[in-house]
């Protein structure tokens, strides 16, 4: 649905002494139809610039952006405006017009596309029901809570039936409970309407809760990207480690430290107990977490086994055989 190829964006200096800032240094990214794709990164990593390039709020310095089969970078101004009607966007600070009621805000995009008044009314009532704000149509944004404002923002973005929804830190200024309900709503809309969602966030929780795929951006480059479950099974994946922080406990020197990852039915098996019984070794649990990621129950555990890696070769092989992902952290060299 969205294909980004070799995208560069640099900001030219404001004066002779300034330096050119390279915000994006060659981004390649594909967001498949119907996905919820999360781009994570710290502030300043370029994720916001990247998202704003997708609907060309920022014009890239070079590279191409294809949304729903149309290369936006080649479009003239008028065609670009039409293309934007098919790309909804929600913002961290909601960006609702304070002078308009909730319904009038939702209708704004439809006014732009020239939909007549009666049809606008009907459509805004429809999408407001969809986001659970059917009864607040005539309220003003200032009378709403943060979560309700974001629901209006989502309704406004969806009013024109877009194929793609871009979310710019949509939950970052909301409290944890409200964040939960907004994420739930996005997930539901993705499922029922089939709208493809590309979101940027600095919160791993968002990826964990709703994303089917994710990319990590650092210093203007994508350093990791893919299906979330696949990433969890990728050795040394930074996203996987960030999704499952296990603490800093590293075990005793000379011992073997391994990390195991398990998903689905394996999460219900007594792995540690069986291993110590079968091989007669004292397994020490350094850290463990079980989470639900993209609707899959997955767990990660850091274990300390006495002795060198060589002496533990058999139990490690046995773990791998039973379908677990195993990563040897210490004693391997």
């Amino acid at each position: 649905m969205i294909t980004i190829t070799d995208l560069h964006k640099s900001y030219s200096p404001r004066n002779a002494r300034g330096t050119t800032v390279e915000a994006l240094k060659g981004i390649d990214l594909t967001v498949a139809d119907g996905e919820i794709f999360g781009v994570v990164g710290q502030s300043g990593a370029g994720k916001s610039t990247l998202l704003r390039c997708v609907n060309l709020l920022e014009r890239p310095t070079s590279g191409s952006i294809t949304v729903a089969g149309q290369d936006l970078t080649t479009l003239g101004e008028a065609d670009l405006r039409v293309a934007r009607h098919g790309i909804g966007m929600v913002f961290q600070h909601f960006n609702l017009l304070s002078s308009r009621t909730v319904a009038e805000n939702v209708e704004f995009g439809l006014e732009i596309t020239g939909v007549d008044r009666a049809a606008r009314r009907a459509r805004s009532a429809e999408v407001l029901d969809l986001v659970g704000l059917g009864d607040r149509a005539s309220a003003y944004p200032s009378q709403l809570s943060g979560g309700q404002k974001q629901r209006v923002g989502i309704a406004r973005a969806l009013a024109g039936n877009p194929k793609v929804l871009l979310s710019d830190e949509a939950t970052s200024s909301l409290d944890p409970e409200t964040t939960d309900s907004i994420l739930q709503l996005l997930k539901e809309l993705n499922r029922t309407l089939g709208v493809t969602i590309m979101l940027i966030t600095h919160e791993m929780e968002v990826v964990k809760r709703i994303c089917t795929s994710a990319a990590l951006i650092e210093g203007g480059r994508i350093v990791e990207s893919g299906n979330v479950i696949d990433l969890l099974n990728t050795p040394k994946s930074k996203i996987a480690h960030a999704l499952f922080p296990l603490g800093e406990s590293r075990g005793e020197p000379g011992n073997t430290v391994i990390e195991i990852m398990y998903a689905g039915h394996l999460a219900d098996e007594p792995i540690v107990g069986r291993m110590s019984r079968e091989f007669g070794i004292d397994v020490n649990i350094l850290g463990a977490a079980v989470e639900v990621v993209s609707d899959h129950r997955v767990g990660r555990m850091r274990l300390e086994l006495p002795g060198s890696v060589e002496s533990n070769a058999v139990p490690i092989a046995r773990l791998k055989d039973s379908g677990l992902y195993v990563e040897v952290l210490e004693g391997a060299l």
């Binding site: 709020l57 934007r84 790309i87 966007m89 600070h93 960006n95 704004f108 732009i112």
Partner: peptide, 21 residues
């Protein structure tokens, strides 16, 4: 708020619409 202008641009608003509305 410049965010409002940005939101209008993201919806495909013309310059005239941004100024008026």
């Amino acid at each position: 708020d410049t965010g409002l202008v940005e939101a209008a641009r993201s919806m495909g608003a013309t310059r005239g619409t941004i100024i008026w509305k």
